[in-house]
Design a protein around this nucleic acid. Structure first.
Length: 929
RNA sequence: GGGCGCAUAGCUCAGUUGGUUUAGAGCACCUGCCUUACAAGCAGGGGGUCGGGGGUUCGAAUCCCUCUGCGCCCACCA
């Protein structure tokens, strides 16, 4: 069992800097040992998140860091709020990506994929998966991800594969899945069809070849077409021209001779042709271009296929036979040149589709593929977002979503790969037209025996399973259900308890691949959305806005970042600078800021521990904060210390200020979480801790006597506030907060901040004392003036000063009277006199604090001219300001049409500024005098 | 080509239904400090008129139009 740090820690032994390494491994082990992240259904309300499964053989990159940091924050907060929190981790088999890696590895061993049988290949792939699989999940633990590791799933686990098969069969039986000849995006290297989403269009410098075709009836007259792909000329079946093209009248219906062949083809009219582009004549090759294919269908043209699956020309007897498509392009162009039919070659920049995985140019190819009809699924999925059952953060992505969903196309789900879920369809050998979709071969056999002409004589040996596997996303779209076995056992305890999940955190890149499809699957199979909130974060880029990638080598190693700045510091860096939905421009300096913040926290704590009073029970009588502690108290190991308690009814100004700020922060933090603005939430807490707590509160708490500890009740309050802030921060920086929480007082084995209560307004109370912020603001204003006076005159921070305030009234006089000790402490070596009739000292620097005049005599130190111009500048500013207001108020239309309160506000502004102006003018006069 | 969105300090971003003293934060920058936790720190300071133009309005960074620049999504022209 892993132990919390030693009890009764000696404050003197607390290091000056926080050491993340040791703390992180200690607390990871502690959390693991106590199974704080384990979830099983119970009476509590569930809070569920499913991880976007990373590729099984992938390694952690910055995108994962961001994605999982955000999820962990949401999950940890929910856990602290008492939900039965379940974050399901897992990995994706990533069919194309993984198969490509395996093929690559085999190649390195001198083995071609084609040398292996399917079974042999699968064996190698599984070996690879077991060897590299799940490394990424281990890396996520380093980051602090609080997943229920016992629930780790893999999309090719037996149960999840079963879900995929079940889904396919059901969709086939319901009439959504069909097989058809389609023009698909073909990857000649991976030798598989790709979905639209897997094609990336890149701008490329190409050529537009102008080629003359001679008319069959009169070889002396020709027409000229323009093409970027001369190698497909041999597959031409027609020439198309726009029906409104003046040439159409004479040409349409005629035959032209196809260069380099002995074939003639017709000239046809089709509106698809753009008369403005190229020559206005388009050669039609239905086998090698999607648009040509459609035109071919419309005009009932034949299909000539001359390019193989590997991208080579197949044309027996032709000199081009066997050439690669790009070699063929050059060869054909040269041949056309020789024939004298190549009129000219133009430079042309065009968009070329490339494979997301292999990067090669896509070849449009006709092939038999499996498709899934999507239109009907889209309807409830659109509705869900429109009604707000599913919310996108930020909401701007809803537009993109609607646009795609309203124009959804059928999904090509088959892939010509081996690594993945094999399509559960069998045909009778020798009869490729037959097709039996079933869960198992046996079931398929039964179906075949029932309906195939060969009937009962068929055996398993007569059946042959479809060679293709399913698109990876065909398993991913079931993920929120399949991780709970909700597809195969729709009524099991887990799925009914955990589904629907809460937040889905992912990148907008896969909004269509994954998010939209999960929504559709969710409604189709369970009639319910798979999640309620979709949090979309940006891409991690470098400072030059380039996407971080292995190939660019601009991505830091996440594990090294963690080693250098700590998991907490790294998480902070990622989250703090991620405006929701925008890309993050990553810089190590961000993690450094995180580490610094962790250290700041550590030292605030160290201060409190060094100043911890010995003994006491926290019930010591109230004392003025600034009075300091009485005797130098001893800090001894194991001594009883005051209770750590959040005081909700503090007396002193600074304590009330701190409490009010805590309340505001709790409120704002909850609001930010509502809107999934995690960076804002962290910002709030950061400011509270650093600015309010460290820079002001702790400064006030410092006992006058250097050796003294803090008065027990005060210490109790201070630590109580600190503890509440640590709880607020824990979801963001889990390790250091857990470390502090255990060190501040004795905790029982098994206690953990991970399951402590996240602060709520119910606990700390609504912000209710705005005036306290204002009052403390006056103190801050005065202190700043004192510091500024010294700094601007180059005086030592301890140069003695006498500060005089001409109090506006008796209340104010009494206010400053109360705050005198505070001012004199924070002001260092200064004395404060505040009275209604306070006399103005000679040769002094002056300012307004609120609306009261304040003086600091600086005989011989100030430059009167500089003071004069300082005051004049301020007077000018105020005059300009007043001018604007007066202009408004003198405008009858403004007074007439603006709401009364706005006018009143302007009048008040004028009044206040007049007062200030008068005060400054008086100060200026006095300076001259 | 169609759609969506963005242009606010050197950088990254806030700025809620147009009206809290002529715009805020973090980082960076400049100056001075090893001051009873923290130099991974403390204190102080400079810096923008809200991309350009026009309009609506008593009043616009905030609404409308337009121009310019940028980003994203979809479709993809041979």
């Amino acid at each position: 069992m892993n132990q919390a740090p030693p009890k009764g820690i000696n404050p003197e032994s607390i290091a000056k800097h926080f050491d993340p390494g040791a703390a992180e491994s200690r607390w990871s082990a502690y959390w693991d040992a106590h199974k704080f992240f384990r979830s099983t259904p119970d009476d509590r309300e569930p809070y569920t998140v499913v991880i976007p499964p990373p590729n099984v053989t992938g390694v952690l990159h910055m995108g994962h860091m961001l994605n999982n940091s955000l999820q962990d924050v949401l999950v940890r907060k929910a856990r602290m709020e008492g939900y039965n929190t379940c974050w399901v981790p897992g990995t994706d088999h990533a069919s194309i990506a993984t198969e490509a890696k395996v093929v690559q590895k085999l190649r390195a061993e001198g083995i071609k994929k084609s040398d292996l049988s399917r079974d042999e290949f699968m064996e190698r792939a599984w070996e690879w998966t077991h060897e590299h699989g799940g490394v990424i999940l281990q890396q996520l633990k380093t980051l602090g991800a609080s997943c229920d590791w016992d629930r780790t799933r893999f999309t090719m686990d037996e149960a999840l594969s079963e879900a995929v098969i079940e889904t396919f069969v059901k969709l086939y039986e319901d009439g959504y899945i069909y097989r058809g000849m389609r023009m698909v995006h073909w990857d000649p290297v991976a030798q598989t069809a790709l979905s639209d989403e897997e094609v990336i269009y890149k701008e490329q410098q190409g050529h537009l070849y102008h080629v003359r075709y001679a008319f069959a009836d009169d070889p002396t007259s020709t027409l000229t077409i323009a093409t970027t792909r001369p190698e497909t000329i041999m597959a031409d079946v027609a020439i198309a021209i726009h029906p409104d093209d003046p040439r159409a009248a004479t040409w349409v219906g005629k035959q032209v001779h196809v260069p380099l062949t002995d074939r003639t083809i017709p000239v046809i009219a089709d509106e698809y042709v753009d008369p403005e582009f190229g020559t206005g004549c388009l050669k039609i090759t239905p086998a090698h271009d999607p648009n040509d294919y459609e035109i071919g269908q419309r005009h009932d043209l034949p299909i000539l296929d001359i390019i193989s699956a590997t991208g080579h020309i197949v044309l027996e007897g032709s000199p081009f036979d066997g050439l690669d498509r790009f070699e063929a392009r050059k060869a054909v162009a040269a041949a056309l040149e020789d024939e004298g039919v190549l009129e000219k070659t133009e430079e042309l920049v065009n968009q070329v589709g490339t494979s997301e995985r292999t990067g090669v140019v896509i070849e449009p190819r006709l092939s038999l593929q499996w498709f899934c009809r999507m239109e009907e699924f889209a309807k409830p999925a659109i509705e869900a977002v429109k009604k707000g059952d599913i919310r996108f953060h930020p909401a701007k992505f809803e537009n993109t979503y609607f646009h795609w969903m309203e124009n959804i196309r059928d999904w090509c789900i088959s892939r010509q790969l081996w690594w993945g879920h094999r399509i559960p369809a069998w045909n009778v050998k020798g009869d490729t037209e037959s097709m039996f979709v079933a869960r198992t071969a046996e079931e398929a056999l039964a179906k075949a025996q029932a309906s195939h002409p060969r009937g009962g004589s068929l055996t398993l040996g007569d059946l042959q399973q479809d060679e293709d596997v399913l698109d990876t996303w065909f398993s991913s779209w079931l993920w929120p259900m399949s991780v709970f076995d909700g597809v195969t056992k729709p009524d099991n305890e887990d799925i009914t308890y955990y589904y629907p999940t809460q937040h889905l955190v992912t990148a907008p890149e896969i909004l269509f691949f994954w998010v939209a499809r999960m929504i559709m699957a969710g409604y189709y199979f369970r009639g319910e959305a798979p999640f309620k909130d979709v949090v979309l974060h940006g891409i991690v880029r470098d400072k030059k806005r380039q996407k971080m990638s292995k190939s660019l080598g601009n991505s830091p190693d996440p594990l090294e970042l963690i080693a250098q700045f700590g998991a907490d510091g790294t998480r902070f860096g990622m989250i703090f600078s991620t405006p929701s939905g925008n890309d993050i421009l990553f810089d190590e300096a961000l993690c450094e800021q995180g580490r610094n913040f962790a250290n700041k926290l550590w030292n605030a704590f160290r201060f409190l521990m060094l100043k911890r009073p010995s003994g006491g029970d926290g019930a010591v009588a109230e004392g003025a904060v600034a009075d300091g502690a009485d005797a130098a108290s001893e800090i001894s190991t194991g001594a009883a210390s005051p209770a750590i308690q959040l005081d909700l009814e503090p007396i002193s100004l600074v304590d009330r200020y701190m409490l009010e700020r805590l309340r505001q922060t709790v409120k704002n933090t909850h609001q930010a979480f509502q809107d999934a603005r995690l960076n804002d939430a962290l910002h709030e807490i950061y400011t509270l801790l650093w600015d309010d707590y460290c820079d002001w509160y702790i400064e006030v708490l410092k006992p006058a006597d250097v050796e003294a500890s803090i008065e027990p009740a005060q210490w109790s309050r201070a630590m109580g506030t600190f503890e509440a802030m640590i709880r607020l921060l824990h979801p963001f920086m889990p390790f250091i907060t857990e470390e502090l929480w255990h060190t501040m007082q004795e905790r029982v084995e098994g206690e953990s901040l991970t399951v402590a209560a996240f602060p709520t307004l119910n606990e700390v109370g609504e912000p209710s004392e705005a005036h306290v912020i204002g009052d403390f603001g006056r103190v801050q204003g005065l202190i700043t003036f004192i510091r500024n006076t010294r700094a601007s005159l180059g005086l030592s921070p301890k140069h003695p000063l006498e500060v005089t305030i001409q109090a506006a009234d008796a209340d104010s006089e009494s206010f400053w009277g109360h705050q005198k000790p505070l001012i004199e402490k924070l002001g260092h070596e200064c004395t404060l006199t505040a009275a209604i009739d306070a006399a103005k000292p000679d040769a002094s620097r002056s300012t307004l604090v609120g609306d009261e005049r304040c003086f600091i005599p600086l005989e011989g130190l100030i430059d009167v001219d500089a003071e004069v111009s300082r005051l004049q500048k301020e007077i000018q500013r105020l005059e300009g300001f007043q001018k604007g207001i007066q202009k408004k108020l003198e405008n009858p239309k403004f007074v007439a049409s603006a709401p009364e309160e706005v006018v009143a506000k302007e009048r008040k502004k004028l009044e206040d500024s007049t007062q200030s102006l008068d005060a400054y003018r008086t100060m200026l006069d006095e300076l001259h005098a």
